[in-house]
Simulated assay, not measured.
Amino acid sequence: MFGSLTNFEGGLFDDLRRMQREIDEVFTPRAWPAAIRSVARGAYPPINIGATPKSVDVYLFAAGIDPKTLEISLQQNLLTVAGERKVTAPEQVEHYRQERFSGSFRRVITLPEDVDPDKTDARYAEGVLHVSIQRREASQPRQIEVK
């Protein structure tokens, strides 16, 4: 008998639940990063880091950036990538939601101690910056012959 009063489908109550979720997203404190050089969720550009016995490869997903404007430096074992992403939109547009990052960014990535800053290569293709840093020869595994 009262089932129809408690089972509201769509309409106003869905809108209220959606607004409550959005307000919770804005006012809920974010968790702190796990380490001093860690970044919070949503940091730009997102990165992947991989390692082999011979090199460390860093991939930064930075679509829409002019690679000539990127500042890439390697000091000791810290790789720094900085730049700016400009997203243009007509001024008359009123945004209801804007998720695409626009503005300056800077990422600092701690690399293993055995990287060789003199053997670094950076390439940008299809929105992905690939920085490859070779490891020092002395730290690479080598086969020892038994006599």
Rank of each mutant, 00 (worst) to 15 (best):
I47C: 09
V115A: 03
Q92A: 10
P29D: 09
T52L: 07
F105Q: 00
D114Q: 04
I109A: 06
A82C: 08
S139P: 03
G11S: 04
G42T: 05
T69M: 08
E22I: 10
F2C: 00
A122S: 13
R106N: 11
Q92C: 01
I36V: 14
K86P: 03
E71N: 13
H130M: 02
F61Q: 12
E25C: 01
G64M: 05
D116W: 03
D66Q: 04
E25Y: 05
Y59Q: 15
S55F: 04
F101T: 05
K68W: 05
I23Q: 11
N48M: 12
L70I: 02
Q76I: 08
L79E: 03
A43W: 05
V87P: 04
F27L: 11
P117E: 04
L111K: 00
V87R: 09
P90D: 14
F61V: 09
F27Q: 09
F13E: 15
R106L: 08
F105H: 04
E9F: 07
D14P: 01
P141K: 01
P45D: 11
Y59R: 14
F2Y: 11
A62W: 03
A34H: 11
L60M: 15
N7F: 03
V26N: 01
I72Y: 02
R106W: 02
M19R: 15
E91D: 12
D66N: 15
P53D: 15
T80K: 12
P112I: 03
E71A: 11
V39D: 07
L60S: 08
G50K: 06
L5H: 08
E99H: 08
N7K: 11
S55W: 02
L79F: 07
T52R: 01
L12D: 14
G10M: 01
G42A: 05
E91T: 07
R17H: 13
N7E: 15
T80R: 12
H95T: 05
E71L: 07
E91A: 10
I72L: 06
W32T: 15
L70N: 08
P112D: 09
L78H: 11
I72S: 07
N77L: 01
I23A: 15
I49P: 01
G64K: 04
V87H: 02
A51P: 02
R123T: 10
S73V: 02
Q75T: 14
V87A: 01
A62M: 10
T69C: 02
P90H: 06
I65H: 05
R107D: 00
Q20S: 14
E126M: 04
R85N: 05
R18P: 06
S104W: 00
Q75A: 10
L60N: 07
Q98S: 12
F2P: 02
E22M: 12
R37G: 13
P90C: 07
V115C: 07
S73N: 13
E9K: 13
A138C: 00
Q76H: 14
A138G: 08
V81P: 01
Q92Y: 12
A34W: 09
A125E: 11
E25W: 05
A35F: 12
E91C: 00
P46I: 11
T80M: 09
E84Q: 12
Q143G: 03
